[in-house]
Nucleic acid binder design. Structure first.
Length: 240
DNA sequence: CCAGACGTTGTT
DNA sequence: GTCTGG
DNA sequence: CCAGACGTTGTT
DNA sequence: GTCTGG
């Protein structure tokens, strides 16, 4: 599962990691929650759904850009711009066939950059359930590339809402003690394949598996992160 | 994901 | 318990 | 044909 | 938009 994460990487680092055409400034975030607007990496297509041929010749797949989208997918056919259901995650196992995701999986994939993500460990203490937040990040300090899907919703009055969801898979050995699901974390060598609108579904499905546990490290953090209103550095302060 | 609220009426 | 807001 | 659904998680 | 159920 992935329901909260951070983005602390600076614009230059992010541009280098993801091969962005332009280093776009954005706000550093310690506590990103569903429904909020956050930057994602994607390749835009023209209205006909074709990549722009000129750009494609120079850069396979087209230009990688950083755009701000809403977390919680609103399918283009929704009556409402607010999803009736909380589509903040999409299961890797069914993403190619579920009506809400399959179009996006075929042609509108993105990478959700994150410095780390949170998982809550549920424990019973004195007969009451407590939720202990844990923070998971890469050992090598690089940002995480979370596999995402996006869509564009347009209302009758012309209002446009662009939104995204994070693909999940079964948890690896490191995350399993906290939860049985985790976000799909892409290898740097696979960024191009995932982002290229022309990639074949059968190749893409091979990427949707848990990353090696050795990539990651994990530790308990301050419960101040539990409240999404607290977007402060304490959210990732380590607890013994 | 967690925190916090949790109503009714009539009209479009 | 269940839904909405962040 | 039209109407209605379209999702994930965790918990029971 | 597209599929399923009636």
């Amino acid at each position: 599962m992935c329901g909260r994460y951070t983005l602390l990487t600076d614009a230059q680092q992010l541009a280098a990691e993801f091969g962005l055409a332009e280093a776009v400034a954005f706000v550093q975030r310690y506590n990103i929650a569903p429904t909020q607007e956050v930057p994602v990496v994607r390749i835009l297509q023209d209205a006909a759904g074709q990549e722009m041929a000129v750009i494609r010749q120079q850069e396979p797949g087209g230009e990688r850009r950083l755009d701000v989208l809403r977390w919680g997918l609103v399918p283009h056919w929704s009556r409402d711009p607010k999803p009736v259901f909380r589509m903040i995650n999409a299961r890797a196992e069914t993403v190619a066939t579920q009506p809400a995701f399959r179009d996006a999986f075929r042609r509108r994939r993105c990478i959700v950059p994150a410095s780390g993500f949170f998982e809550w460990q549920r424990l019973m203490k004195d007969g009451k359930e407590v939720k202990l937040p844990h923070y998971i990040r890469r050992r090598d300090g690089r940002p995480l590339a979370l596999a995402g899907l996006w869509d564009r919703w347009q209302g009758a009055d012309g209002v446009v809402v662009e939104s995204f969801t994070i693909v999940t898979c079964e948890a690896n050995e490191l995350v399993r003690s906290l939860h049985d699901r985790m976000p799909v974390i892409l290898d740097r060598a696979d960024y191009g394949l995932w982002l290229d609108p022309a990639s074949r579904p059968e190749d893409l499905l091979g990427l949707l598996r848990p990353c090696p546990a050795e990539w990651l490290m994990e530790g308990r953090v301050n419960p101040v992160v539990n409240n999404p209103r607290n977007d402060v550095p304490d959210c990732i302060s380590d607890l013994p």
